Simulated assay, not measured.
Amino acid sequence: MNAPRTIAEYLEQLRAALRGADPALVQDALYDAEEHLRAELAEQPQRSEADMLAHVVGTYGAPEEVADIYRDQEIKIQRALRPPPVPRRPSALGRFFGVAADSRTWGAMFYMLLALATGIFYFVWAVTGISLSMGLSVLIIGIPFVVLFLGTVRALSLLEGRIVETMLGVRMPRRPPYPAQAGLSFRQRVAAIFTDGRTWTTLLYMMLMLPLGIIYFVITVTMVSISLSFIGSPVLKILSDADVILWTCGIPEWLCPQTSWWGVAVLCLLGVLLLFATLHVVRGLGTMHGTIAKGLLVRSAQPQV
């Protein structure tokens, strides 16, 4: 491969060397490389890009070397951050109840509950920002406001990425798409924001989070509440027998917890099964949402034509 003579060529060669890697890793690597290269160029403005790159390749590394370093570091980081593996259970029953031992299950459940609050915030922020941007577009402050708003959108996408990675275990970017270095003019940075498709897919994600957050919250709270109420039926039976509460039901008497301990046992067992089924549903929703977040918040790792 020919030695890069411009920063753009270096980044394209690095992107090509990272082909097949996680798109979030590619975004982080490209950000770090571009930030370093532009900082080097800004410190020595008298040198051409070709001369600077010839020097940097010997210190920072050639694109292929940098790609290998990032792949190795990613493996080490993922090993350190990955939760303890859950023992594989050969039986279907073991896999069904073993979901409770997976830390990602509880992370997904917490995310399902948190998604309502974050969804409301993201939706209000996006709709308010879009409305104000359109309303102020006829004024001289319109363009600066739009740039500021889209900058906050990118910052929120990084925050959401950290939440998704921590709770759902999906690798997300830890760097923004473009470095905010003096080597890039203000016009170039603005153009990069407007022409990057991920700016607009991030806005779409923020608006989708409200309906998704409502769905996640309602499903999780409803299923958990029903499960716990069934599991707590023995307590209700005891309180009913002691005339502390009045408990009536419209099912056959031999199954009715009000009159039969058989009914209490069946209801409690159903509650346990429903609770573990809920954990599977929640983990599945977490996997699905991780895929959505990855698709809308992470830049494509494919070389740009």
Rank of each mutant, 00 (worst) to 15 (best):
L136K: 02
S240T: 02
L116D: 05
V244Q: 08
Q44S: 13
T259A: 15
R189S: 09
V218N: 04
A155C: 07
M207A: 02
E65D: 14
R71L: 06
T59F: 04
S225Y: 04
I140S: 06
V264S: 09
V127S: 08
A62Y: 06
G161F: 04
K237W: 06
E40T: 14
I238N: 05
L297M: 12
Q258F: 13
G290Q: 03
G20A: 14
G250E: 06
V124N: 06
S103D: 08
A92T: 04
D102A: 10
P303W: 00
I231K: 11
V57G: 14
P63R: 11
L274M: 09
A265Y: 05
V272K: 05
L204Q: 00
F186M: 13
A8G: 13
I163V: 15
I251N: 00
G169T: 02
A277K: 01
I75G: 03
P211G: 10
I75N: 05
L228G: 06
Y205A: 03
Y216V: 02
M134N: 15
R89T: 09
L210F: 09
M223K: 04
D28I: 01
G183Y: 01
S131F: 02
R299E: 06
L236M: 14
L93S: 05
M206A: 06
V305E: 11
T152V: 01
L150G: 04
P177A: 13
A301K: 03
R5E: 13
M209I: 00
V224S: 04
K76C: 03
V146S: 13
A301F: 01
H36P: 06
S185I: 01
L246C: 10
R175S: 11
E43K: 15
T201N: 11
V282T: 11
Q258C: 13
L255Y: 13
